[in-house]
């Protein structure tokens, strides 16, 4: 359970950070005005992803053993 949850947090964290990063960049924008994030709060998604990845270490240590 603990390992699964930790792994899930790391994987979801990486996914959110990747989506947040790509969505924040507006890579396809041709002008500066269009270069804003693809959706509002995309950078927040990146931050949440980073928080999940780091938080995984706390979950791994703090969750008690099954027995």
């Amino acid at each position: 359970m603990r390992r699964t949850l930790t792994l899930a947090m790391v994987v979801v964290g990486i996914a959110l950070a990747a989506v947040g990063y790509v969505s924040s960049a507006g890579w396809s924008a041709q002008t500066l005005a269009d270069a804003d994030p693809a959706f509002v709060a995309a950078p927040l998604l990146f931050v949440v992803g980073v928080v999940l990845m780091v938080g995984a270490a706390v979950v791994y240590e703090l969750l008690p053993d099954r027995e």
Partner: peptide
């Protein structure tokens, strides 16, 4: 505004996200 509109084309994006959140949180953990 950083949470809503920050863009990774700016090096400040990393200051805010990686240093301000990632590194600080990782150090606290």
């Amino acid at each position: 505004h950083l949470l809503l509109y920050a863009r990774p084309q700016s090096a400040f994006f990393a200051t805010f996200t990686l240093v301000g959140v990632g590194l600080l949180l990782a150090s606290l953990v």
